[in-house]
Design a protein around this nucleic acid. Sequence first.
DNA 1: CTTCCACAGGAATAGGGGGTCC
DNA 2: GGACCCCCTATTCCTGTGGAAG
Length: 412
Amino acid sequence: MFQWKLWGTDMDSFDIVDKVFENATKGNRLIKNSDVLKLDYIPNKILYRDIQTEKIASVLSPVLNMIKPSNLFIYGKTGTGKTMVTKFVMKALEGKKNNDKIIISYINSRTSGTIYRVLSDIALSLKIKVPFTGLSVSEVQKRIFSYLKENEIRLLLVLDEVDFLVNSPLKKDAGNDLLYELTRYGSYADSNSFISIIGISNDIKFKDYLESRVYSSLHDEEVFFTPYSVEELKDILKERANIAFIDNAITDDVINLIAARSGGEHGDARRAVDLLRVAAELAERENAKKIEIRHVQEASKNMEQDKVSEAISSLPIQEKLVLLTIVSLQDTENTGHIYIKYIKICENLGIQPLTQRRVSAIINELDMLGLISAPVINRGRYGRSKKISLALDKSTVIKTIKEDETLKSLNL
DNA sequence: CTTCCACAGGAATAGGGGGTCC
DNA sequence: GGACCCCCTATTCCTGTGGAAG
């Protein structure tokens, strides 16, 4: 105890911390099982997804007899249970197979980020050691294939968010090539080894980005996941809440609100459960007896802000500068004006400004992140430009930008 | 119907920092 | 140590374009 005092004289802070810890250990706990509220939780019974579960299981089942399953494509928006059902089936297969020649790999293309990393993640899941950079893509691919062949591996490869590999023109070709090579693997291996691909995509238009040769060999089977209705979301939330919380911690009203708020438009169960979790944590932190409407509202606000802050703080310095320029303007502005203003800000900071071409690209990137809105507009005689405006709350942006090392000297 | 604005955005390229392989 | 690779930011040069003004 006395050591604590040496670090600081502020006993009030110490009291506060103490109180929080006390509450956490023996205080008013609403949550008795937090696992079911986590994003990667897989329930034993997945509600309203029987058809999809059965279909996926039946497509993949031949693998248990060492026969190559058809390639499978799974479509549906975020939070419709694609990943969950797939993982559920994977887990079940994992339990059923009694053969270590069958390997089931799950790769998330988005978190992997690049073609190279997708491949190195595949390698990793096969326990092949691959450096995280330095090798060529084809080299990694070669290693994977020869490993599969030598060890007679039957690989079920789940590629989540596979649209990420081909949806940007930049890597479109490379993504197509990768998928093509993977589907072709069977042809230059013998029948003792194969790859079956289970592609999961949020983007219904995904197939437009695929070359036809890839499409035809990839789409043996398809499964669609429709968004959950608000009613279905309520049931899902109720079931989770039953396991997660102590009795009487939440009322139907609150559940209904969460279902309506996060599911109303998109039927997104992931968002709904996440909102439930944050609201519960909030309620618990303030020692409330139950989760109330205001907790949900507060949680929803916090989550939005966190998301924005995170997106902004991970931005490179120049992108922050451009964003800052946009914040500093009231109203919508076109690219030219932004650029002029941007140069002034750079001069003030003693930073070498970028070319307009680059700034234009940065504006596109910020637009894609949803931080700004920048549609192209035509004003006839007065040229073709972008109508640029901030897509979110000014104060959040300023607050986050201020945290940047090189920019904190600015008085905003 | 033509002009012409104010850019959009593609292509090629560079360069620095991460690394491996032989 | 040299060849080669990936990743990212950035530059230079460039062609393309919707529609108000004339």
